[in-house]
Structures are given as C-alpha cells and as structure tokens.
Amino acid sequence: MTQLTELRDMMRSLRLSETARQLPELLQAAEQQDASYAHFLASVMSYEQKRRDEKQVEKRMKWAAFPDHKTLKEFNLAEQQSLSKKQLNQLADLLWVEQLYNLVLLGPPGVGKTHLAIGLGIVAVESGYKVIFTSMGDLVQVLKTEEITRKSKARLKRIREADIVIIDDLMFMAMDQEEANLFFHLINDLHEKASIILTSNKAPKEWGELLGDPAITTAILDRIVHRVEILHLNGDSYRMKHRKTIFGSENVSN
C-alpha cells in the first residue's frame, strides 16, 4: 500500500471523504508552491469545509423543490416598475426572515411573482436557510393525504421544519371546508416559526370567497398579516410579451 493510498484511507475513516478524493491535487499544489506544513494543513481543512458547505447547499436546494432555477439576477426590474432596485436588495438581505416577516406577492399572471419568490428562495438556500416550494394545488393534495401516504407525511414534515415556505398560486381555486381547515392548521403550525412567501392574483380581501368559511379566513389572515410585507406587482405579462411563436417574427394577427 502506497503512502498516498494509506492517507486517503485514513481520511475516509475520519469522514474527510471530499479531501480524500482531492488529495493528489492538493499535494501537487503544495509542492509547486513550496508550502509550509501549516499552509498545507490549512488548505486541506479549507477544501473539506468548502466542499461540505457546497454539498449542504446542494442538499437544501434539492429539498426546496423549486420548479425552475430562476435567480434574482435574472429578474428584470425594467419589466417590473412597481419594484425598485433598493427594495429588491432589501429583500435579498433576508433580514425579514430573521424578523419572521411574511411576504405576499400580488399581481396578475405573468408579472414575475413566482420568479421573485424562487429567486429569494435560492438566495436563502445559499445563505443557509431551509426553504421549501409548493404550489397551492399540490399543498392541498399533500394535506389531504398526510395520514395516508408516507410521501405526504415526509413532505409536510419538511414544510413544518422549513425556515421559509413558498406557496405559489394561493387561492387559485376554491376550497371546501375540510381543505380550508387543513390549510389553517398548517398556517397555524408555521406562525412565528417560519416566514411564508405567498403569490396570488387575488388580494387578501378576496380570499374569503375561495375559503368559504369567514371564521377560518379571518384566522388565516390574522396569522399571515401579523407581520407582512405586501408587494403589488403590476404591468403586462412578461411571458406574453416575450413569448415565442411558431410563425417566427410575424405578427399572429397578420
């Protein structure tokens, strides 16, 4: 057994598996730089820590279950005049998460609500927060099957343990009494424990029409708006403005 093989085996037994894989390159770099023992040891520890951090981000990103990878850098502020650069930077600072604020992103379809929610979620994941994304339709289905399937139970466990829960397309469909009650209990579980980002094309005053029960609506609103920032995104649909057509550059109406 060579000394390199022995070192790599010992590293693996000490759970320094990332460094074990990279050890030949680290040794070569140290020899080329004529590095001191302390410098080499620091580079080994630094590499292991870096790779562990990266793997944690990868793990949290997988758990977040974002439907797309849409970053804040890709969010076109020129297309969304109702949000300033300063406001976007303040949201990206994530101080509101530490303060357990909720965000409600309101506006018609296509104005960037989901993109903004995902972008903030990605920043949060990279900053060490546990984030989870769900559409309202999927959430209702998971809530209704929590006692039936392990998958739904595991999904809701992650939701309840998250630092940020993103619920997309809130109130896009009417709920029956059971669904509204289950949704209330989830919001109650998250209250004062996590920040919630909601996207919706309906203002909170309209939610009662879809929840059906005035008492449940009031209870949900009370918990969401206790600490909330409501952002009204407006303008033309970005998706419609930049849609692709099978007719090339021709106007469809021609």
Rank of each mutant, 00 (worst) to 15 (best):
F184E: 05
E74M: 08
F66K: 07
I216C: 02
T149Q: 09
W96G: 04
A154L: 13
L211K: 00
I167S: 05
L231P: 00
N181D: 13
S84Q: 04
G121I: 05
P108C: 09
K86R: 12
I224A: 00
P109R: 07
L190T: 06
K73P: 00
A65T: 08
L26P: 05
L143S: 10
F247I: 14
K151T: 11
T199L: 06
S13I: 04
K144L: 14
A215Q: 12
L210C: 00
N234A: 13
P214F: 01
M1E: 13
Q49G: 04
L16G: 00
T199E: 09
E74P: 00
L186M: 10
F247D: 13
V123R: 11
L27M: 14
K244A: 12
E178T: 13
K70T: 08
D53E: 14
Q49M: 11
V123W: 00
N234S: 15
H226Q: 05
S84H: 03
L95M: 04
E48A: 11
H39C: 03
G128A: 08
V125C: 14
E126R: 11
G212S: 01
V97P: 02
L83W: 01
G235N: 10
R155H: 13
L72A: 06
M45N: 12
R150M: 06
V123C: 05
D9H: 11
S82I: 03
L103N: 06
D168F: 03
S253E: 14
G107H: 09
K157H: 15
L143N: 12
L23F: 09
E74G: 13
V228C: 15
K70V: 03
E31C: 07
A215E: 09
E79I: 02
L186D: 02
D9C: 05
Q28P: 01
L233H: 00
K151I: 08
V123H: 06
K130S: 14
S253T: 10
M11H: 05
V111R: 08
E192G: 04
R8P: 02
L120T: 08
N254D: 14
L120F: 05
H242G: 05
V140D: 01
W96M: 04
T199G: 12
M136R: 00
L41N: 09
I246L: 12
L139A: 10
R60N: 15
P24K: 04
R223F: 04
Y101D: 07
